[in-house]
Every structure is written in structure tokens, then in C-alpha cells.
Amino acid sequence: MNVMLRIVVSSLVLLAGACASTTPTSSQARAAAAQPAWRDANEVVGGTGLFVVRYRTAPLTIPMNAEFAIRAWVFAANDREHPLDDVELAVDAAMPEHKHGMARTPRVERRSDGSFGISGMLFHMPGRWELYFDVTREALTERAQTRVELE
């Protein structure tokens, strides 16, 4: 199925290097190892500017009507070098124009490297989706959201 992902949010950073498929040399591998894991990730800022979420989908191109996964990191907006370990993350998606969400509930688990692994995502139809990252610290939850056009 010929499905294409278009990300149309200005805050999102998708580096071209993410698509490189050549075999790295050892020096490149060392350099890569020195890079943080979120190096190529998309970035989206929370609705009131408290948190920043960086994320990467797997596969990079979100498939239609097939499961995909997300790896995400959460940062304080004023410190984008150190992922926060005192926050909770919930992930969801919806199609506001259709007034429905996903037909399933994704699972979120915290990993020891400071990232969150999200599995069970599925966009079951083409159109405009909104991807929601809800970051909770104590009693405050802030949403970072981005738009996904699935064709």
C-alpha cells in the first residue's frame, strides 16, 4: 500500500540524515554513539511551554491501518539536554473533524535510558490526525501535540 506521511508542524524537526542508509564507519559509529539518542527526533512543545517532547516513530513513515511504535523523550522547556525522569507520559491520537480517536489504547512504558516506549499505535484511516503527548508532573498535565496527514 502506497502510504505517505506528511508532517506539517513548524516546531517539528526531521533531519535528512535520518533517512541515510549507508553503512557507518567506525569513526562515524563513535560519533553517533556520542550523539544523544534523540538526535534525529521530531520535536514538539507543550501547549503552555513547560515541556518539550522529542519523538521518533517506527517505522519513520507512519503506515495506514497497521501498528507502529514511538520512542519519546520529555524535557523541560528550559533544559533540552537532560530528559526528565520525574514525569509521566500518556500518548493518544484523534481525528477532531471526525470526532473520534484511535480504535485502540496504546501502551506506554518507561525505559531505563530515560525514554518512553509507546506501542500499539494505529491510525486506521487516511486524513488529518493529531498526535497527543500528555506530560504529567504531580498534578499538572501539559499536552504537546502535532499534526499528521495520512494519505
Binding site: G46, G47, T48, L50, E130, Y132, E138, A139, L140, T141, E142, R143, Q145
Partner: peptide
Amino acid sequence: LAFARSLDFVKL
């Protein structure tokens, strides 16, 4: 409109 944040008094 986009949901931006909430304060949960249960957690508080």
C-alpha cells in the same frame, strides 16, 4: 482550540 494543560485536584 487545542487542549493545553490541566490541573488535577485529585492528584493535588
